Simulated assay, not measured.
Amino acid sequence: MLSIAFVNVSLLDPELLRTFVSVVDCGSFTVAAGRLSSTQSTVSQKIARLEEQVGHAVLDRSRRDVRLTAAGERLIGYSRRLLALNEEAVEALSRGVVETTIRLGVPEDFAAGRLTGMLVEFTGRHPNLKLEITSGLSRDLRRLFERGELDLGLIKQRKGTEEGVQRWREPLCWVDSRANPAFDRDPVPLVAFPPHGLYRDDMIHTFETLGRSWRIVYSSSSLAGIQAAVADGLGISLLPVRTVLPAHQVLGEEHGLPLIDNMEIATYHRTDAGELITELAHQLSLLI
């Protein structure tokens, strides 16, 4: 029986492992040579080199049929895994394009409807693009962008901020329940975003100015929660015009409520942002 001293080796030759696996799978040096388009002597030489590398005999040559030694039993599983990983790496790199990640932040009321359809279409045109989307309150998105945790942000802010790459007006309106109006109650019940959230201070300031008593009856960071609370008659709210539901009725000057026109939407990204980011920013602008 072949006995070989252990040799310290850091890397196993994939070609030798491929030959080893072929001999085991075929059960014969001769058949393996045919599969590998090689000769039996070359296959034998490669197995001998592998055994020299690992310092153990991996095949029992004392029998007519090919059998694994104890060391060969341990090596065959590693060999298959190493070869599979090698093929996976070659396939991934042969695609020629490295995956690009864009971290996008959008307000919750943009995170549905036309936005998702646009993002599906955009990623379809750029199959090597990976989008990581964060939805939340604009104040939180702004902080994430400032900390460098977003590449592109669609952020609501007050007019006059004069920040952002592009800015657009965000029309607002007062909304009440169509089925169970709440506006005439005393105090006026308000449905609002959390403290320091957009529109909340404007709502409070309006009713303080009108001299009407008010109280916050429902507070949520979820647009869907705000919409549902108003629709069910819990109270009134101030929301973007595009978020009004059929179950809402819009209140205006005929109800003594002023027009609130102090909000805008802005896109944020670095001045040296890449082509994909600027293209996505343009696509976002088409939704506004």
Results as ranks from 00 to 15, higher is better:
F6E: 07
L12R: 12
L12K: 09
E15G: 14
F20M: 13
F20V: 11
F20H: 11
V23D: 01
V23P: 11
D25G: 02
D25T: 10
S28L: 06
T30C: 07
S37C: 06
S41T: 13
S41L: 06
V43D: 01
I47Q: 05
E52Y: 13
V54C: 14
H56S: 10
V58D: 04
V66A: 13
G72Y: 03
E73Q: 14
R80N: 12
R81D: 09
R81V: 06
L83R: 09
A84C: 00
L85C: 05
N86S: 12
E91V: 07
A92S: 09
S94V: 04
G96P: 06
V97L: 06
V98R: 15
T100W: 01
T101L: 10
R103E: 03
L104F: 01
V106P: 00
P107I: 12
P107Q: 09
D109N: 09
A111Q: 07
L115N: 03
L115Q: 06
T116K: 03
G117P: 03
M118W: 04
V120L: 13
V120T: 13
V120Y: 08
F122E: 04
P127A: 00
L129T: 04
L129S: 05
E132W: 02
S135N: 01
R143Y: 00
R143Q: 09
L144G: 06
E146G: 05
D151P: 11
L152E: 01
I155K: 12
K156D: 15
K159R: 15
T161G: 14
E162W: 02
Q166N: 14
R169T: 14
E170I: 00
A179V: 15
A179E: 15
A182I: 03
A182C: 06
R185H: 09
V188H: 05
L190T: 06
A192R: 08
A192I: 04
F193T: 09
P195F: 00
P195T: 03
G197T: 08
E208F: 06
T209R: 15
L210R: 05
S213E: 13
R215H: 08
I216R: 07
V217S: 02
L223V: 04
I226S: 00
A229P: 02
A231L: 03
S237M: 01
H255L: 10
I260P: 12
I260R: 12
E264T: 07
T267G: 11
R270C: 07
D272A: 10
A273S: 14
L276K: 11
T278R: 15
E279M: 04
L280R: 11
L284D: 00
S285R: 14
S285D: 11
L287A: 07
L287F: 10
